[in-house]
Each structure stands twice: as structure tokens, then as C-alpha cells.
Simulated scan of single mutants.
Amino acid sequence: MLLAVDVGNTNTVIGAYEGRRLVEHFRLETHPHRTSDEWGLLCHQALRHHGVDPARIEAVAVSSVVPPMQHALERMSARYFGCKPLFIGPGVKTGMPILYDNPREVGADRIVNAVAAYERWPGALIVVDFGTATTFDVVTAKGEYLGGAITPGISISVEALSRNASKLPRVDLDRPDRAIGRNTVSSMQSGIVFGYGALVDGLCARLARELGGPRPTVVATGGLAPLLAGVSDAIDEVDEFLTLDGLRIIFDRN
């Protein structure tokens, strides 16, 4: 079995694959100061809780945007799973040409998402990942990673709003009934949820115009993808575990 580890700035999503099938998945808070033993014990406990024998894990693949965690994850893989992990980065065969000015600048998660989306929906694509940052990644019809856009994520925007505006509370990210809020909470929810939906629609339209050709398929991923897909006209497909699947695909290619 393969353990796919997607390390984000806020959360780390981990999935256990048997062949092409995602058997189980779980989410841990990203904590760069955890030791390799802490990560190993947490993974073993979570796997057992979900009915997966940790001894069946034979390989580990990692996509990480938190460089300080690499050493701990390397030691965790060696000590608790008896293998050397595959970290997505320069020198790893992805099967996708990277047309960025400096390919080393592209986050591993963005490449992994693009690879997974193109494998499932071959053709021109825009992949929107709702994480700590909201990223937009453009893939050409020929399967080339072209570039994209990065905006502040929804959660950190909400935190900044409530932290810097003393009269505004922190609100739950729920879809309001209407855009015209009749109280502070519903007004904030309108601005956040409908506002981000409009941001997605507007930016996807601009990216599609620059890309040219037929309209690209827009794929959303990340924990908040289902919420935003409900208010965005641009989003065609939702796959919350796109990054994990991309890790599996790239591991197979290597």
C-alpha cells in the first residue's frame, strides 16, 4: 500500500492507497515542530483507527509546502514504514512539462493537482485549490503546466477581517440565503462566500481568455471546494482528494 501525504500550511491530509483505490484518509494539523516519532505514532494510530494495518504500508509519497517538515517525514518513513519517501520536487518524473519561468518556484501541490486533473479530464484545465492560499493553475490542452494565480485563502481572509475590524466577529463559513445581508453575520457571510465565488468566476474567465481556444474545464479541490462550487458558475468538477490522487499517479510514474 502507498501512504500519500499532502502537507499544507494549515492541515496535512493523508491517504492510504491500495492500487488506484483510496482506502482511507484522515486530516492532521500541520505542526512543523512535531518530531518524526510524533508523526509516526499519529499516522499508525490513525491508520489502525480506520482499520488499516500500518504494516501494509510499503511506500510513502509526499507533497509539501512546508520545507522544515521534510527531515521529520523522512525519518518517520524510514523508522515507521521501512521506506524512503518520494518527495515531489525537481528531478521527479511528473509527465507534465512545466512552462513556468522558474519551475523550481512552483509549489509541489500545484503540480500534483495539475497532473491529477489532466489524468482524469484530459484537455485544457483550470485547477482551483481552496487551501491556506487559493491557487489557480492553468494546464494547456497538450498537458503543459502554464502558470496561474495565487490569492489569499478564504479562512485567513476571515481571520484578518475579524482581527483588524474590532466590531466584526469571526463567522462560520456558511452560505447565506441571500446576498443582501440584514445583519452583521449574514452580511459578512455574503461578502465572504458570494464574494469569493465572484472572484473565482472573474479570475477563471480572465485566465480562460488568455489561454485561448475552447473553454477549459474548471476543477475545484480543497476542503472548501464543495461550498464554493455551490456559488460559482465557473466550477465544473469537484474532487476534494485531487492532490492525494496526484501523489499516487506521480509515485507510479517513478
Rank of each mutant, 00 (worst) to 15 (best):
M1V: 08
L2C: 07
N9P: 02
N11C: 00
I14S: 09
R20W: 11
H25M: 13
L28T: 06
P32L: 11
Q45N: 02
A46Y: 04
R48E: 11
A55N: 10
V66G: 03
P68H: 02
M76W: 07
M76R: 01
G89V: 01
K93M: 14
G95C: 11
Y100C: 11
V112S: 10
Y118F: 15
W121L: 09
P122D: 06
F130H: 09
T132C: 08
V139Q: 07
T140S: 15
T140C: 04
G143A: 05
E144G: 09
Y145T: 01
G148D: 00
A149G: 14
P152M: 06
I154P: 11
S157D: 00
V158G: 15
L161I: 04
N164M: 12
K167Q: 06
P169T: 09
R170G: 09
V171M: 13
L173R: 15
L173C: 12
R178A: 15
G181N: 05
M188D: 09
G191K: 04
F194A: 14
D201F: 11
G202L: 12
R215I: 02
V219R: 08
L224E: 10
I235K: 10
E237V: 15
T243P: 03
L244G: 03
L247E: 03
I250L: 05
I250M: 07
